[in-house]
Amino acid sequence: MRNIVPILTVVAAIVILWYGAAVKLNSAWVYDQATRAGAKVPSFSQVVTETMNQERPVLPTPHQVTAELWKSTVGMAITSKRSLVYHGWVTLSATLLGFAIGTGLGVLLAVGIIHNRAMDMSVMPWAIASQTIPILAIAPMIIVVLNSLGLQGLVPKAIISAYLSFFPVVVGMVKGLRSPDQMQLDLLKTYNASAAAAFWKLRVPSSMPYLFASLKVGIAASLVGAIVGELPTGAVAGLGARLLSGSYYGQTVQIWAALFAAAIVAAGMVILIGVIEKGTLKRMGMVR
């Protein structure tokens, strides 16, 4: 109960700010309409009413977005091409596949980096360079190249999302696998333990808190990758497609509804990883 008050306060503040901004930004259209119609300048209360439910507002109001979200999820069969559940699932499946690939690749690279000096010296600069390239620039290339190899739909999007999500996993896992201190490593040396034993019995368990922190960043990056991957394909399906078609037709309410759907999906996945993290660390005895 103690936590709910501050949370609701922040939410209320955001909603109030949002309404304020909506009135300000959408009023231009109201004045413009009034001038064109030759009517007298509308009063403030008239302006406020007129900005609340425009068809193509500059900034849709919270209740418009909520209504659109409700309509396109609960109020519609999920098989419909306008259902956000349908589009959300398309994006989510690419996100999850990309996240799995990215995490696997990230862990493999991290293991290579800590065990192999050549990889230690050479992989990181490339990994960092890969993240400095705007994903928006490279995504169409990936789609085109993979398309010419006969890969379409899910896989290219998953690869773009893996491209974004492997990085936090590499960084986190290198740090995590190297987290045991010298004393811990000396102790294993006194047992004449093999590198494999040191890896499985010490390095992997030590890296778990780092892994989960990376996964939370990685899953959010995966979702961004999947959405960006949907843009150059001509807006067929997915949250990215909804964003793109919304902007084609000036459907700002649709754009905002899709944005919120993406945010809700991301939050859900981060929360899910948090739950798995808590369970795992608790089982390992690392949470009191």
Partner: peptide
């Protein structure tokens, strides 16, 4: 060392927190 001739105790206990 390879024939495991000694046990070594460090200044810190260094127990693995994830093991009982």
């Amino acid at each position: 060392r390879k024939s495991r001739a000694y046990g070594y105790v460090f200044q810190a206990a260094g127990l693995y927190p994830w093991r009982t």
